[in-house]
Each structure stands twice: as structure tokens, then as C-alpha cells.
């Protein structure tokens, strides 16, 4: 049997916990099951495509297998927008809602396949945090602030809470916060570390899943995927599933470590959970947005509502 190379394209920092843990586990599983016959070739840092380009690059086959921010596919698949709805979900219940039969991985994959791609794995890097120069605990604290919002859904959220959403590229968040160009930034929790945001803003809050889920996906070009030898495809799919689970575990561990690290750097970090008095206020303030979920398909809303309201 011939050698198979899985070309894997990522963007952003190659040291992101999601990339490192996924890639490590994937390579290990393939080595174990195919003994070096199936290998991964990693194209990091947007060498083949940036995050925003993936919705074209994967369906057209320029990228065969790539790391994606699922939310950035709203322009192609409307339903992915449902993942940004504010819910009371935790990372654990989110993982369940993703994997269960009729869960959102299955629902979304069906839609990905209609557009020439397939969604093979989903990992939640956790809800985005809000880093700010002024302490934010309750939703009212967002009123009147200029807040960097990286996506459509999060801009809606900022508006809903009375702030003004600002579009600022990831690389400029540090400077913008440092000089007060903006008062706060919605940014991935890991981003606080990679951009050293703790140097320029005193406060951070992770308001549960009220800032939506941080769903990253691993998607392949459908034609390439189906063109693989069925045996090989099975081996690779199994390895991807292992990598998905390993990466999820690594992320949860990493987040706990990061929170400690930010606090040591002098940041005031709030991790909102259901035991806190403000939890209800966040839920109430964001419920109108969740109600807007009626515009997404019933299939995608079912697992979200099940996991989001249950606990």
C-alpha cells in the first residue's frame, strides 16, 4: 500500500494549544495504526490560507484539511451562527451536545457536505473572554464601552448589552487597549496570553457561554476525503477522533493554568458560573438574542437548547 500524506493547514500562532494538542495526538495515532505509512504535513501560520479564507479554500480543494473557526463559516452555512448564541452551556455539556446523535457536529457536517466540505472534528477552545480597562462583572457594566468584537454574533451581543462594537484586527488589540482606542475587547481566552493582553488591561471576565462557544473545527475537502482509500480513511477518521478528544482535554487543562497565570500577572480575572449572583442577570440580558435563534434551523437549535438550558 502506498504512502499517504495528510496536508493540514492552520493559521495564527503555530503554538496554539488546540493545534499543538490535536496535531500531536493525530500524528501519534497514525504512527501507531499505520506505522509511518500515513503521515501529516503541517502548513502553519496561514501559509496556505488564513482563517477567513478557509470557507473558500476548503470547498475548492486548495486546502485539503484545515483548522477552522466554525463561526467564520456563517457566510457559507448560516446555521453555524447558532453557536454564537448566548447560552448557559459549559465546555463539558457543549462537548456532549456536539457528539451526541443529532448533535451539532452531525447537523453541521450534513450542511458542510452540501458545500463540498466535511466537518470531521469539533473542539471548543472555550467561550471568549472580555478583557477591559474597567471592571465588568454584570452585563450592565458593558454599557457605553467601545468593545472590540471579532464576529457578527459577538457584535450583536455587545450592542445588546449597550456597548459599541468595534472591528479591530487581532494583532492590533494590544495597542488599542493600551492606548484606550477601545475600552474592552472580546478575545479568545488564549489570546490574552499570546497577545500579552494582561500587560495592558487590568480586568478580564469569561462570562460563561454568554459570549457564545469558541468552537474550532477540523474540516476537509469532501472530494479529497472521499477519494481516500476506504481503509485509510477509516484509520485517519479514528486518529482524528482521538486527536479531538485529546485536544479537548488539553484545552480544559490549559484554561485553568492560564487563569492562574493571568492572575499572577496582576490581572483581575472573573470566571462567571451559575453560583454567582450576576449569572441570572447575564441570562436575562442575553435571552433576547437567544430568542433570535428562531431564525436558525430546528435541527441545530435542538442540541443547543438541550445542553444550554438543562444545567
Amino acid at each position: 500500500q502506498g504512502k499517504v500524506v495528510v496536508p493540514f493547514a492552520t493559521w495564527g500562532s503555530p503554538t496554539h494549544v488546540n493545534i499543538v494538542s490535536f496535531l500531536g495526538a493525530l500524528e501519534a495515532a497514525l504512527q501507531r495504526d499505520a506505522g509511518g505509512r500515513i503521515t501529516v504535513r503541517h502548513y502553519p501560520a496561514g501559509q496556505l490560507a488564513q482563517d477567513v479564507d478557509m470557507p473558500i479554500a476548503i470547498p475548492t480543494g486548495k486546502v485539503k484539511f484545515g483548522w477552522i473557526t466554525v463561526l467564520n463559516w456563517t457566510g457559507l452555512i448560516r446555521d453555524v451562527g447558532a453557536l454564537s448564541l448566548p447560552t448557559a452551556m459549559t465546555m463539558e455539556s457543549g462537548a456532549q451536545a456536539s457528539d451526541m446523535p443529532g448533535g451539532f457536529k452531525e447537523v453541521l457536517d450534513k450542511q458542510f457536505r452540501e458545500r463540498g466540505a466535511t466537518l470531521l472534528a469539533m473542539t471548543d477552545i472555550g467561550s471568549p473572554a472580555i478583557a477591559s480597562s474597567k471592571k465588568i462583572v454584570g452585563p450592565d457594566d458593558m454599557k457605553g464601552l467601545r468593545v472590540r468584537a471579532p464576529s457578527e454574533g459577538l457584535a450583536e451581543l455587545v450592542k445588546q448589552l449597550g456597548g459599541a462594537p468595534v472591528a479591530i484586527p487581532f494583532g492590533e488589540v494590544y495597542t488599542a487597549l493600551q492606548h484606550g482606542t477601545i475600552d474592552a475587547a472580546v478575545i479568545g481566552f488564549q489570546g490574552i496570553q499570546s497577545q500579552r493582553v494582561y500587560e495592558v488591561s487590568k480586568f478580564a471576565i469569561v462570562p460563561g457561554s454568554f459570549t457564545g462557544m469558541g468552537m474550532q473545527g477540523f474540516a476537509a475537502n469532501l472530494q479529497w476525503w472521499m477519494g481516500l482509500n476506504p481503509k485509510d480513511r477509516e484509520i485517519i477518521a479514528k486518529a482524528i477522533r482521538e486527536a479531538e478528544l485529546a485536544s479537548r482535554a488539553a484545552i480544559i487543562k490549559d484554561r485553568a493554568g492560564l487563569a492562574d497565570q493571568y492572575r499572577q500577572e496582576g490581572m483581575d480575572v472573573t470566571m462567571l458560573d451559575s453560583s454567582m449572583p450576576q449569572f441570572a442577570a447575564w441570562k436575562q440580558a442575553t435571552d433576547p438574542l437567544l430568542a433570535k435563534g428562531a431564525t436558525f434551523s430546528k435541527e441545530i437549535m435542538a442540541p443547543i437548547l438541550a445542553a444550554g438550558n438543562g444545567k
Binding site: 477567513v52 470557507p55 473558500i56 470547498p59 467564520n72 457566510g75 457559507l76 457578527e152 450583536e156 472591528a167
Partner: peptide, 21 residues
């Protein structure tokens, strides 16, 4: 071909503007 592909899927930007690409 790129345009045909974008038109077939009605590809839009993922931002609030939802600009047809």
C-alpha cells in the same frame, strides 16, 4: 471559476455586513 463557486453557494462575508463575496 471562483466566482461561479461563490455564486453557487451564495457565499457571503461572515461579518455583520454579509457582503456577497
Amino acid at each position: 471559476a471562483l466566482i461561479a463557486n461563490s455564486a453557487r453557494f451564495g457565499l457571503r462575508s461572515y461579518t455583520i455586513l454579509q457582503v456577497p463575496l
